[in-house]
Amino acid sequence: MNHHPRTRPWRARLQAVALALILGAPFGLYAALQSGNAPLAVFFFALLVLSMALTYLSG
């Protein structure tokens, strides 16, 4: 069964990027928090926000 027969290629690519960021960015965020590197933590949190924005746009 194809769950998303009308998923357009750009949308599928956007979703794949969003998923990679949504699952990857928090681990960078964790490393930055543990090492006390605030600018890096802000960067990874921004990536997480970006992944949510991409999820919204491709949803």
Partner: peptide
């Protein structure tokens, strides 16, 4: 292809 199409969208919903 069919697995990834179904998995990606539902995973995003779960993550949020």
């Amino acid at each position: 292809d069919n697995t990834s199409q179904g998995a990606v969208n539902s995973s995003l919903g779960v993550a949020a």
